[in-house]
Design a protein around this nucleic acid. Structure first.
Length: 289
DNA sequence: CGGCGATCCTGAGCGC
DNA sequence: TGCGCTCAGGATCGCC
């Protein structure tokens, strides 16, 4: 599933293959894929048609392409199964093709939004003065953004009355971290997911942030190699799953640091993977976690 | 209003 | 073999 590094690879692909092109015919094949465009699919198509794509941008897992004079943008989120593909027009439709965007040129390729589970989608929004689509104004900068404020992040953690993994997944604090990267960064920092953020020292939160950046950069280095290949294909698939993960998905397997069997615990309708030896549960909290 | 649980969706995988 | 259950998960909404 696409997380920040995969989305960045898609952004680069978009920049290479669709920036500067003018939109022609647009087809919405599944209404759920444009549900965030509140004015509906007819309006979505109208807003997009005839627009010229600017430089592709990203914040966290959100992607957007400014339209024409930068007053509005085409915003995209891949959800958990979304893909943006640049395909030759005569390529057969993918089974889960949701949106087709053709261009008013002779290049012969089109942009396709393909999404099995339809958690993702595309929409058109006005931009704020910062050039950000207005609906994502509340999304914090991501840790790979040079303007990310480490000190402010630490202060926010201290003020929150929540646990560290929840905080990592909180878009208003830090964006782009998903379940996999959260578990990996917590393992590297030897932090239990239920640790209250208010107990984190400044060095510990700095270490955590460093590990978040490390796992993302490692994944980016992997995924960044594939988009440039011979096929005209902007694809969010990551090489990251070929890498050995240290925490995610490793239930009952030995910890790469100490050999203790890794554990999986239900967490927020999903799972948390951790080493019970390296990542001790907080004493004040759920003792059997 | 901050925190948190429920919810959306579909296919893979697994147990019986 | 095939049915039905569980799981995967980001972001949003509504409730306390």
């Amino acid at each position: 599933m696409p997380e920040l590094p995969e989305v960045e690879v898609v952004r680069r692909g978009l920049d290479r293959w669709v920036t500067g092109r003018t939109v022609g015919e647009v087809e919405v094949l599944h209404p759920r894929a444009v549900r965030r465009h509140l004015a509906g699919s007819t309006d979505f198509v109208a807003r997009l048609s005839g627009s010229r794509f600017g430089t592709a941008m990203r914040r966290g897992k959100y992607l957007w392409v400014p339209l024409d004079d930068d007053a509005s943008s085409l915003l995209g989120h891949l959800g958990m199964s979304g893909q943006l593909l640049v395909q030759p027009q005569d390529t057969p439709d993918e089974k889960h093709l949701r949106i087709r965007i053709r261009f008013d040129d002779a290049l012969g390729t089109e942009l396709r939004f393909v999404d099995q589970r339809t958690f993702g989608g595309l929409s058109v929004h006005e931009n704020t003065l910062d050039g950000l689509p207005d609906t994502i104004a509340h999304i914090a900068r991501d840790p790979l953004d040079p303007a990310f404020d480490d000190a402010a992040f630490h202060s926010a953690l201290r003020l929150r009355r929540t646990t560290v993994k929840r905080a990592l997944l909180d878009q208003s604090l830090i964006s782009g971290v998903g379940n996999i990267y959260a578990d990996e960064a917590l393992w590297r920092t030897r932090l239990h997911y239920d640790r209250p953020t208010a107990t984190l020292t400044r060095p510990k939160s700095a270490e955590l942030l460093g590990h978040v950046r490390d796992v993302m950069n490692a994944a980016l280095a992997q995924g960044g190699t594939s988009f440039d290949s011979l096929y005209v294909n902007v694809n969010g698939e990551s090489g990251y799953f070929d890498r050995s993960l240290d925490a995610y998905g490793r239930e009952d397997e030995p910890c790469h640091r100490c050999g203790t069997a890794m554990r999986r615990r239900p967490w927020m309708n999903r799972s948390s993977y951790y080493c019970p030896s390296c990542q001790r549960p907080p004493r004040t909290n759920t003792p059997r976690a």
